[in-house]
Amino acid sequence: MGTHWRYLDTPPALPGLFMQAALRRKVHGTHLPDQGLRCWVSVDPDKVKAFANVCGFIPGSLLPPTYPHVLAFALQMKLLTDKDFPFPLLGLVHLQNRISIRRPLGSVIKAQVSVRLADLKPHAKGATFSLITQIDDALGLLWEEESTMLCRGVQIAGEPDGTYEPAPLPMSELATWYAPSDIGRQYAKVSGDYNPIHLSASSAKLFGFPTAIAHGMWIKSRALAALDDHLPASNVDISVTFQKPVRLPGEVTLSASTAGSHGQLRLEGKEGIVHMVGSWQPAGE
């Protein structure tokens, strides 16, 4: 079944969406809606610069490779708090994220954002689905993202997919950085993502975490900033799997294979705790 698109004149306001997310705490179905959302958004250079500063990117003529996620965040929230979406937004776990940069992210002033849901599948801990985002400019598809989300405790028919791990490449340590206790609040200010598990120890404890944890997309962004010279600027897919969360404050070390069209990365904390693994390759390969 194809996606039925709903077009919005302006991006939705986030405060009301966070209120809806806070009020919905139960699963009320096991089918994804076939409605997607589309809206034109403008790119604010000051907001891009603020995002780059928080995530470690050097400001330049190109958008940071993860910034389109921020452009789409309000539409993603709107889709995931809609009455037809069956799962509570708070409590979803971001397992994996893939972005595909089709063309250089330069001179982007206005773009059309499209978000939809797909691929509901059984998982050992519940069910997963894909949140798919596309960014188009006047020339067509510019950037695409697939976020794999887990809803714990949901039971659907079928067997979970097996896991595939590529053969590891030799890696060397590239960078070590410290994630301060307020990085969740810093990232929320530039992204709009005010999930309470990232903001403070007290708010994170309400959801079962002993302390605040870093945003997954901040972790990915910070790693890509450190890998700027390693990666192609376009025609590249960058995939990561989030493993153990980064508790705040904390120190992490990024390792990666050599620069090139293909490669792998790993982010570790103290005592070898693996927080994130990933890879990059030509788009669509």
Score class of each variant (00 low, 15 high):
218 W>G: 06
218 W>C: 06
219 I>G: 14
219 I>S: 15
220 K>F: 09
220 K>C: 05
221 S>Y: 10
221 S>Q: 10
221 S>C: 09
222 R>V: 08
222 R>F: 10
222 R>H: 13
222 R>T: 12
222 R>D: 10
224 L>A: 05
224 L>M: 14
224 L>E: 10
225 A>T: 03
225 A>Q: 00
225 A>Y: 09
226 A>Q: 12
226 A>E: 13
226 A>F: 00
227 L>G: 10
227 L>S: 09
227 L>C: 09
228 D>I: 01
228 D>F: 06
229 D>G: 03
229 D>H: 10
229 D>E: 10
229 D>N: 07
229 D>T: 08
230 H>M: 01
230 H>K: 01
230 H>Y: 11
231 L>S: 02
231 L>D: 01
231 L>C: 01
231 L>A: 01
232 P>E: 04
233 A>Y: 10
233 A>P: 08
234 S>D: 15
235 N>G: 13
235 N>Y: 05
235 N>F: 04
236 V>G: 00
236 V>A: 01
237 D>Q: 01
237 D>G: 04
237 D>W: 03
237 D>T: 03
239 S>Q: 15
240 V>C: 14
240 V>S: 08
242 F>W: 07
242 F>Y: 15
242 F>H: 02
242 F>P: 09
243 Q>D: 10
243 Q>R: 15
243 Q>L: 15
243 Q>P: 02
244 K>T: 14
245 P>V: 02
245 P>M: 03
246 V>T: 12
246 V>D: 10
246 V>P: 10
246 V>C: 11
246 V>G: 04
246 V>H: 11
247 R>K: 12
247 R>I: 00
248 L>F: 01
248 L>H: 02
249 P>R: 04
250 G>M: 08
250 G>A: 06
250 G>Y: 10
251 E>L: 05
251 E>F: 06
251 E>C: 08
251 E>M: 04
252 V>W: 12
252 V>G: 06
253 T>A: 08
253 T>R: 13
254 L>I: 06
255 S>E: 14
256 A>V: 00
256 A>R: 02
257 S>Y: 03
257 S>M: 02
257 S>G: 05
258 T>F: 06
258 T>Q: 14
258 T>I: 12
